[in-house]
Design a protein around this nucleic acid. Structure first.
Length: 476
DNA sequence: ATGTAC
């Protein structure tokens, strides 16, 4: 992106000034290098989002932003229903409630070494991964509805994990307001045999070592210490969420113009929050979000089963589970007035500071754990939410490294075998059924996650707590 | 992201 046309607000924030149809400015949190590396499409998409009815304050982009379907990935946008605000399927994305959860183990890096092959093979065999992967679970209609209403709470009730897990999941493990009746038969059908599957693309299951601690007191409260091993799961709502997004994106294109919504790009696909289709989408989207929470809960149970068998200890406690593709109704102070707005975070993680209502009770004084997943073979980070993020970007932070190359570009540049070999030499074990998938997800296809996190920290969106390096990575 | 296109 050409920085000459942006207003530099401070070291870490750049403004796309209001022009043309834009109702609010765009604000990009980035270093000069990161913003310079962003495609002009990001600016175009942010300007389009800033032109949508009812948008408040600004359209935001996190330092990992890159262009996506309609809205940029790494984007945050809030809309006020009292000012004709909209919801958009493209503003949440196709993988509804895709997110990360991190579990703590009692093991150190040294403990893992003799068990490395057994754990890698055990996880690879026990956790279904890949395109079209299916589970040994089969849900009937009644169970599917209960799952869509109950999220991770349903999963715990069905025997996957413990009640204590729920306190460490966003929204207590269940999004309120889900409307399973708005999830089509087709979407349900796709999920009948996909509960407890990892999926493909950038989704993964990783064993990671804590390599650095930046804030010892917070790391201690989170249960993190240098040399400890954790398990992170990155995945979403699989076929069901994708089907919900597909159907509503289509419906919004058809019904949006009836509400006087004119789009610069049909992928912006928006309808008023206060319309039948807007309410249907919001209810269906939250049901899909519950599906993702239940899915990650079941996957964690599978991980615990493997740890129990291989190490004799399956008691992994949950640090946190947070989505980075979701729209939620939240109260924010905007221009001195508290307003209820619908915040779309697409490739952006919520980042609640100390004292916020949804921070787990035992972490209330510290802030919400913010889980940042790196790309395959690179580091991940644990951060903590800040009070400053509330005023800067509706309590939001980045979500990962962010792509800098398309899948096809990455596939042309990399052979899957070479990527696996390169990582093996760095003592990182990759288990995948798809060498093509590995080539598409090669580290070279992503920005430098360290640089993204540095900006996130320096801009006050979240603060660094610990860094994680991959040991074993199970890919879809 | 996705039974990897309508």
């Amino acid at each position: 992106m050409n920085t000459a046309t942006l207003n530099r607000l401070d070291d870490w924030a750049w403004e796309i000034p209001k022009s043309g149809t834009m109702r609010v400015p765009g604000i990009i949190f980035a270093s000069e290098e990161l913003v310079g590396g962003m495609d002009e499409k990001v600016r175009e998409q942010m300007s389009n989002v800033a032109s949508l009815p009812g948008i408040v304050q600004a359209a935001y982009a996190m330092p990992d932003a890159h262009w996506g379907y309609g809205f940029p990935i790494g984007g945050v946008a809030a809309f006020d229903p009292q000012e004709g605000g909209v919801v958009s399927a493209g503003g949440v994305g196709f993988d509804i409630s895709c997110g990360v959860r991190t579990l703590l183990t009692a093991l150190s890096v040294e403990d893992i070494e003799p068990l490395r092959a057994q754990l890698a093979d055990g996880l690879f065999q026990h956790v279904p991964a890949g395109v079209g992967s299916t589970s040994r679970l089969r849900l009937d209609e009644r169970e599917l509805t209960a799952m869509l209403n109950g999220g991770a709470r349903w999963a715990v009730g069905a025997g996957y994990g413990q009640p204590a897990d729920l306190g460490r999941i966003e929204q207590g493990g269940r999004y309120d307001g889900a409307d399973p009746a708005q999830v089509s038969g087709e979407a349900r059908h796709r999920q009948v045999d996909e509960m407890g599957t990892l999926g493909s693309g950038n989704h993964y299951l990783e064993l990671q070592a804590v390599t650095d601690v930046y804030d010892p007191a917070t790391a201690d409260a989170f249960g993190l210490a240098v040399g400890a091993v954790v398990v992170s799961i990155h995945c979403g709502s699989r076929g069901l969420g994708h089907q919900v997004a597909t159907e509503f994106a289509r419906r919004m294109v058809i019904e949006g113009p009836g509400y006087g919504i004119r789009l610069a790009d049909r992928e912006l696909a928006s309808v008023p929050i206060d319309s039948p289709v807007g309410r249907d989408y919001f209810g269906a989207m939250l049901a899909a979000a519950n599906c993702a929470l239940a899915n990650r809960q079941i996957l964690a149970h599978f991980v615990r089963e493997v740890f129990e068998r291989v190490t004799g200890d399956g008691n992994l406690s949950l640090l946190y589970d947070v989505s980075h593709n979701v729209c939620s109704l939240e109260t924010h102070e905007i221009a001195g007035r508290r307003r209820d707005v619908y915040v779309h975070r697409k490739g952006a993680t919520r980042s609640l500071g100390p004292g916020a209502a949804d921070v787990p009770a035992d972490l209330k004084a510290i802030g919400q754990p913010v889980l940042i997943g790196g790309s395959m073979g690179t580091c991940s980070y644990i951060l903590a939410g800040t009070a400053a993020s509330e005023t800067r970007a509706f309590s939001s932070a980045c979500h990962g490294a962010g792509r800098c190359q398309s899948r096809s570009q990455s596939m042309r540049q990399n052979r899957g075998e070479d990527v696996v070999e390169r990582l093996r030499r760095r003592h990182i074990t990759i288990k995948s059924r798809s060498l093509r998938g590995v080539a598409e997800e090669a580290p070279t296809a992503y920005k430098d996650v360290n640089a993204v996190v540095e900006v996130t920290h320096a801009a006050g969106l979240a603060r660094k707590v610990a860094r994680l390096a991959p040991l074993i990575c199970v890919k879809g």
